[in-house]
């Protein structure tokens, strides 16, 4: 006991205890939080049809904002006519359900698995006709795309928000165009035909399906392009270049100048 009370008076004790308490609380919260926010985890497979299952998930996970009949509400849009592609994009990339009410839904680990997402999409598609999920037969960008043409289309239509290298960019009031690196081809196609969040819809008359494939092919080419000219410095242009020239360049040279003018002892 004496030993413990002596430990209690050490300077280090308070911060260590605080740190431990934070870890315990944080982990407990994460554990409880995780069990609360996975409503689909126990979904029964005994449902008769996919649409019924989708409706079930919808009522449980989406209807509190989007309405019991997907008619929308004060904080969420109606989902009648958005089509399966929109659901597949929003739910498949983890944007929906929303993590919080910030400016924009962000990409995160999806909450529903593939079957659940497909079921949700199937249910929403029955509400009214809308864009369908592009199948593998449609996503033949490797074969039918033209990289250079895709680059031209990208720079004309996409670069002003997503950056010339697809690195993403800032929009007003905290909204942003996300980075396009590491995104599945299917989601590019869906985003173009459904126009999620701040993004406009690029219909088949504005950008033909073949041109869409070209754009995807160009993005994939940029993504796989590595280390031309050395470290890419985050591909954000002159901001990091300036930082490197001051910190690494001038910093290093000043260090050497100090060394050169040190008197030898």
């Amino acid at each position: 006991m004496r030993k413990l009370s002596r430990l209690r008076r050490r300077k280090i004790t308070a911060p260590v205890l605080l740190f431990l308490a934070l870890i315990i609380v944080g982990n407990a919260y994460a554990f409880i939080g995780a069990t609360v926010t996975t409503p689909g985890a126990t979904a029964s497979n005994a449902r008769s049809t996919m649409v019924d299952e989708g409706r079930e998930i919808f009522l449980r996970g989406c209807s509190s904002c989007h309405g019991l009949n997907a008619e929308g509400g004060g904080i969420a849009p109606a989902l009648i006519g958005v089509g399966a592609a929109s659901v597949d994009f929003q739910v498949g990339t983890g944007r929906m359900p929303l993590a919080d009410m910030s400016q924009q839904a962000m990409r995160k680990t999806p909450i529903y698995n593939e079957e659940e997402t497909a079921a949700l999409a199937a249910y929403v598609a029955t509400l009214a006709p809308g864009p369908a999920i592009p199948g593998a037969a449609q996503l033949t960008f490797e074969r039918d795309g033209n990289t250079a043409e895709g680059g031209e289309l990208f720079r004309t239509n996409c670069a002003m928000c997503h950056n010339a290298a697809g690195q993403g960019g800032a929009l007003t009031q905290g909204k942003y165009a996300p980075t396009l690196m590491g995104v599945e081809a299917k989601y590019f196609y869906e985003a173009m035909i459904t126009g999620p969040q701040s993004m406009p819809v690029f219909g088949d008359k504005a950008i033909t399906p073949e041109e869409k494939l070209s754009i995807i092919k160009w993005i994939k080419a940029v993504e796989s392009e590595k280390g031309l000219g050395g470290a890419s410095l985050g591909k954000v242009g002159p901001v990091t270049e300036g930082l490197v020239s001051w910190v690494l360049g001038i910093g290093l040279l000043i260090g050497i100048a100090v060394w050169l003018t040190t008197k030898s002892r």
Binding site: R155, M160, G168, G237
Partner: peptide, 8 residues
């Protein structure tokens, strides 16, 4: 392009 910047 988004994020267009001049040199420092």
């Amino acid at each position: 392009s988004a994020g267009s910047q001049p040199d420092w």
